[in-house]
């Protein structure tokens, strides 16, 4: 089920389809980044990319 409860905005069919396509593409990047940071952590390097959004408050 996608819409439960029904959305209060009409998300638009085209907008839903295109965002799922784009997002799925980008998910691959995120997954790769996650595995890469795991590999790096095996060699004792700390991942700095985590939780970047916490500084956005001052954006």
């Amino acid at each position: 089920m996608l819409f439960s409860p029904p959305p209060y905005l009409d998300p638009g069919s085209g907008s839903i389809i295109i965002q799922v396509l784009i997002a799925s593409l980008l998910a691959i990047g995120i997954a790769l980044r996650a595995s890469w940071s795991k590999i790096k952590s095996l060699f004792g390097k700390k991942d700095q990319a985590v939780d970047q959004d916490d500084d956005n408050a001052d954006a």
Binding site: I22, A23, L26, A27
Partner: peptide, 16 residues
């Protein structure tokens, strides 16, 4: 019709 197929993982959401 399109909606039930339109699923994206939380990772995909973050990517977006």
């Amino acid at each position: 019709q399109t909606a039930p197929r339109a699923q994206m993982s939380q990772n995909a959401f973050l990517g977006l």
